[in-house]
Design a protein around this nucleic acid. Structure first.
Lengths: 163, 163
DNA sequence: CAGTTTGTTCAAATTTTCTTGAACAGACGT
DNA sequence: ACGTCTGTTCAAGAAAATTTGAACAAACTG
């Protein structure tokens, strides 16, 4: 799971922490986590903070206890959606903007160029618009995923639980 | 594009190289590339090699010339598929195997445990099977993507070209 | 064949990212 | 209010990665 998460663009420890919490029936303290994963308390604090920020882990507490307890967000599906929404979509949007900007700049320069240069610029513009189109398609794809349509509920959501 | 690729798990330079090639109407030499992107020849050689390995760039040559020429694989769509196929799917499969292995080990231990421990182990097993189910679903999803079904051709493939 | 030119590989060096321990701050009980 | 226990932050250190320059190899030229 650590490897999956790492590949996915998060720190390895985030994956490990989440997994431990996910597998534990009861909420856990930072101390326990640090102990199990052999991490310093600072590392645990840092990564847990991020996990909470991404909504992958919830901070809870127990009546008598002073310590904070943590438990994993159990709906993996929800989690994936949130990540896609916050991160992938932004990235794609930025890319689309950048392509657009590049095209605009090329268009401005065009009239100042010689024939050969013009040919190159025109080619670039065509390619850029293709990249834009592809990115838009990607954006739509992610949006569909996030919206929860497109996927056969029997395939994915059935694996999810309560809550 | 560099950023996109980086996020996507490749080196930044790979994205930059590919983009330059993609935007150029004619194949280019390593020297030109190194020049434009301000990279050492070794960096270019290394990253280009990987791009070729991923099928994102093709090596070509021109009759009279000694140097190698490179051009971008223009079908981005094909490219994405290949990456998903080679990388994501493997990763997911490994994860599934690991989950299975973990479950098996827990099952073996079970009989040796006290009641409280048993409760934990049972919980873990349930969770593990859920993770497996989710991963399987992810695998199917990627497979559909790779197969090219699932996506409205009008959305995505129309943005692609010849070849 | 000797001399160029080009491409690749590799270890050293740089840069970047992670990790840690210590210092700080907040909350609680006495 | 003071001492203790937790959690967070931050700068210094460690580890990992990228980058580079040089050495090597291969392909071609005259």
């Amino acid at each position: 799971m650590g490897r999956l998460m790492e590949f996915w663009g998060f720190r390895r420890h985030m994956g490990r922490l989440w997994t431990i919490l996910y597998l534990s029936p009861d909420p856990m303290t930072t101390t326990e986590l640090a102990d199990i994963l052999q991490l310093s308390s600072s590392a645990v604090s840092l990564s847990l903070g991020e996990l909470v920020h991404w909504g992958a882990v919830r901070k809870t507490w127990r009546p008598g206890e002073r310590k904070d307890f943590y438990q994993a967000e159990s709906s993996v599906w929800k989690l994936l959606r949130r990540v896609y929404e916050r991160r992938e979509l932004n990235l794609i949007r930025e890319a689309i903007d950048a392509f657009g900007e590049a095209q605009r700049q090329l268009a401005e320069t065009r009239s100042l160029l010689g024939q050969e240069e013009r040919r190159r610029v025109d080619y670039m513009r065509k390619r850029l618009s293709r990249l834009t189109a592809l990115s838009r398609a990607g954006e739509r794809l992610v949006r569909l995923l996030v919206a929860g349509r497109m996927i056969n509920p029997a395939d994915l959501q059935s694996a999810e639980e309560e809550e």
